[in-house]
Design a protein around this nucleic acid. Sequence first.
DNA 1: CTACTAACGTA
DNA 2: CGTACGTTAGTAGG
Length: 877
Amino acid sequence: MTDSAKPTLMVVDGHSLAYRAFFALPVDNFTTKDNQHTNGIYGFLSMLVNLIKAEQPTHLAIAFDTSRHSFRTEEYSEYKATRSESPQEFKGQIPLLQDCLAAMSIPVLTKEGIEADDILATLASQGAEQGFDVLVVSGDRDTIQLVNDDVTLLYPSVQGVSQLKRYDPTTVQERYGVRPEQYPDIAALVGETSDNLPGVPKVGEKTAVKWLTQFGSLDELIARADEIKGVVGGNLRDHIDDVRRNRKLNRLLTDVELPVGPSDLAVAPIDAQAVRDIFARLEFRTLLPRVFEAVGAGEVADDPASVVVVPAPVETSPAELAAWAVAQHGDVSLRIMTQGGSPTRIGAATLTDLRESDWTESAAEALREWIESDAPKVLHDAKPQVKALIRQGIRLRGLAYDTSLAGWLLRPSFPDKTLSDLVERYLGEKLPEADPSQLVPETEGATPSQEAWFALRVADALREDIPESVAAVLVDIELPTLLTLADMEVAGVAVSHEVLSTFSGELAARAEGLAQEAFSVVGREFNLGSPKQLQEVLFEDLQLPKTRKTKTGYSTDAAVLADLQESNPHPFLSLLLQHREATKLRQIIESLDTAIGDDHRVHTTYVQTGSQTGRLSSTDPNLQNIPVRTEESRRIRSAFEVGEGYDALLTADYSQIEMRIMAHLSGDEGLIEAFNSGEDLHRFVGARVFGVEPSEVSPAMRTKVKAMSYGLVYGLSAFGLSKQLRIEQSEAKQLMVEYFARFGAVRDYLRASVMKAKEVGYTETIFGRRRPFPDLASPNRVLRENAERAALNAPIQGSAADIMKIALLHIHDDLRSQQLSSRVLLQIHDELVVEVAPGEWDATEQIVRARMGDAAQLSVPLDVQVGRGRDWNEAAH
DNA sequence: CTACTAACGTA
DNA sequence: CGTACGTTAGTAGG
């Protein structure tokens, strides 16, 4: 063990150890859903964490090679020339590993033209001089020369990276028979195959050690080379130049100029959130607690910067709180605690003053005027609070900032979910949290007004960070959308239990019949819903050919079953598919039915921060994926009915909004003409692509260009298109050529759009919503190409989302300002469902059409289809 | 009980 | 080897 009085400097060769881990760990177990390999990263970090725990270094750095070129290749071009190129799967892991280390606040050192081991040698030498105990961790034998009384080498043993062998001067002497500083002499004589440094033929370790012991030094040996007899003596004399060269090349530099010295490498508190983020991305789960344990996440909390004095709240009555709030001039932050959707307590804060109060009987009346005024209010995750107020008959106005939305707009790919996350990221502080595992918590959680105070400070920090265009999206789109969604969620949509349960009963009976039939075909009963048992039946009992592989076995999804049915028709396959369909519909019905409330309505929750593109998502239940494609499944939609006191449901959807946005963004004259011609889009495009009259476009032709058009928006390849259309890849390729011959500006735009994103690092919608794409710069091809497709899609899907949000909030505001009772209930990305009050149809339809049509000024019109009915299915026609 | 996967519904 | 989501049942681990 090291002397505890002395600081311990640990320096690690990142490249060589990660490389060993890369080969030691099976790649199959270390691949993310994005196909990013992580075995090298995991293995290295795992080893590092163990090392830190065991050695408790006070100072730490990891060195990496920059490339295979160094001053050594300059001197001797054959240096390491026989070493095969390290695989791309490994190289791609290095930048990610360095990101992990950055998050862990561990310095990463590199220098152009210098190998990692030279950096280690320099730091080891400086460290020893400055009174450190030095631990060198490397997989390169040349580092043996660094060992002395102050420097210990940890070298991977044959068992693998997890077992490191400790070399001090004594163990080196035992193992190699020489002192550490003599080891390079041996290596020079013997040569190093892996570095392509040939030594003296027939001379191995034994001979080399014997000579060195005999002559005392390499120089002496070279000077008296003629004293050596026999063949080896001749070999030595013939290869003296090689030996001199080897010795020159294997000497590690101890005078590399580095921006930091050992004392700058003190172990620093980790960035806990950054570590969580990157580990989440790499899908490391078990490693996270190990990292926190080893490097002490506790240090984050102990960081002086995070010790903040939170002002003490003043307990008031609701009326006093309201009076105080009204007297404030700037932003007031607000936090309403709720239970079961009703307010229980309210807290408010400025930067200097905190007030809070229980939500008493009279609270609503006392607070109404201020809450409904334009006075600016800042909240974190306002929607549930706004909803609680709506249920009290209070409509919040003056919503100036929502930190949850702002945080999402800045980093849509890593949603900082909670206020606590944002406090950590933007203030570098800890939000006081009660320990939920304790009945009587040792630590007090933040009170409502204290949470409000933190939110206000987070808002100020976010305002500094947020680009102007993104701030505009927040203020002009997201904040008003939040208030609209709150109304929609509170309203809910009427769903008929009777319609659902009738259908459910039919489906249950059918599913049971299909299951029995399937069992008799197979000859045994099993769980049709278990992919695992299904695989046994398909590939063992029935001996059907194996399909596409999944992580855990072979796929049994609808697409491969359809393929199987074509190549190996079997009655079981169609029974299975029908059974799947019936049970799936039944599940959807079941979840919908249980969501029906006492008011006979279903209240979904829209997650405004739920996507990376700007779309909404819908949960509990998800009303954005109610089946529509088949006639039968549409029966579910017919259960969505107009509510009591209302006349009709109105559905309104944008037709081909994404293609219209493509036309607008690309300025493609052909596509713009297509939308202005009034002709069916796919017919028009088909006519151009296949060189026929629109009337001569066959259904097959229309299907092809339709798939192509939609595919474009997603970054479709010839391979994907051929799979989708079940045509040859060459034909798909030809289709793409013909398509782009007519609509070339579309391709130009898509290319330019991704190029621009690579340059600036993010994409932008028409309205300025941004989405960062760090992976566009990734050396990993899979990651990069995935990012390219997503980057291609983001401005299009995102602009469509912006337009729909603008239309939605305009419709909502118009309906209210014209004092109509009709109300928007649902948003399904490009469709709205409105509940229309008696006598309001014409006014409502007019508002919906106008507001959807003029939500954005594009170079093509925004076409809106409107339908009317007693239920959703009827209204869709 | 939690966390994950395969499968599948929507735009 | 086509984007963006949420939910479910089955399964494996604790």
